[in-house]
């Protein structure tokens, strides 16, 4: 089962399976909207605000995601696993507004590689 992930600040969409973390699915889709750091829940580079959707989480570094953050949907993309379609915005220290991953070869930016 896979779900559609929408990254608001880049306009990118990609598919993510329920057992794959969102950052891994984004990298495999050659999208760039969420900055990539350690990929392991430690550094906070892939911090996102989830606007809509349900997800499971794994343990994240409390130095970068507080318990209050987690309740408010501020989480690390490398530690969330979708349980529905998700809409989110990258808010980590390297985050920026970017163009959709249109420079990638066609077919890599939505759905086909999830």
């Amino acid at each position: 089962m896979s779900f559609q992930i929408t990254v608001e600040n880049s306009g990118e969409t990609f598919r993510c399976a329920a057992e794959v973390h969102v950052l891994e699915a984004m990298e495999k889709a050659v999208c760039k909207g969420i900055p990539v750091g350690c990929r392991n829940g430690g550094c906070g580079a892939c911090k996102v605000q989830v606007q809509a959707g349900r997800y499971a989480t794994r343990k994240m570094n409390r130095a970068v995601i507080s318990a209050e953050d987690e309740v408010r949907g501020i989480v690390l993309a490398c530690k969330i696993y979708p349980q529905s379609d998700l809409t989110l915005t990258a808010i980590g220290p390297m985050a920026r507004v970017t163009a959709p991953c249109g420079s990638a070869p066609s077919g890599l930016d939505s759905g086909t590689h999830a």
């Binding site: 900055p35 990539v36 750091g37 350690c38 550094c43 580079a45 390297m94």
Partner: peptide, 9 residues
């Protein structure tokens, strides 16, 4: 790379 300066624990 941007991660050198921005990614640490």
């Amino acid at each position: 790379n941007e991660a050198f300066l921005s990614v640490f624990t």
